[in-house]
């Protein structure tokens, strides 16, 4: 049994890594879609979005990402404060 040459192996590894990252992003987008759909689409769906629904969806994604960043920052601040006052490490 022969294997792929080193260059091909490397190429495949890079390819798989990229595909994996993309699949992960897709799964996040699916989760965000359902979450924001539940928040923004309140009426009965018609042939087009109701007023404000489109911008609500975009805002929903932006604010979710803000929330995620905010929480990371907050935890970091709390850790710094704790370390400063000598309570925790």
């Amino acid at each position: 049994m022969e294997k792929f040459d080193e260059a091909t192996q490397k190429e495949l590894a890079t390819f798989l890594e990229r595909e994996q990252a993309q699949a992960k992003a897709h799964s996040t987008i699916h989760t965000l879609t359902t979450m924001c759909w539940d928040k923004c689409i309140t009426g009965t769906p018609s042939t087009r979005f109701a007023r404000g629904e489109e911008s609500c969806l975009a805002n929903c994604v932006e604010r979710f990402l803000d929330t995620s960043l905010f929480m990371v920052k907050r935890i970091e601040q709390q850790r710094e404060q704790a370390a400063f006052s000598g309570v925790g490490a």
Partner: peptide, 13 residues
């Protein structure tokens, strides 16, 4: 609308 919402979310993200 759901597919459209998916595209909006995808674009924004």
């Amino acid at each position: 609308r759901y597919f459209e919402a998916f595209n909006i979310v995808s674009r924004t993200y």
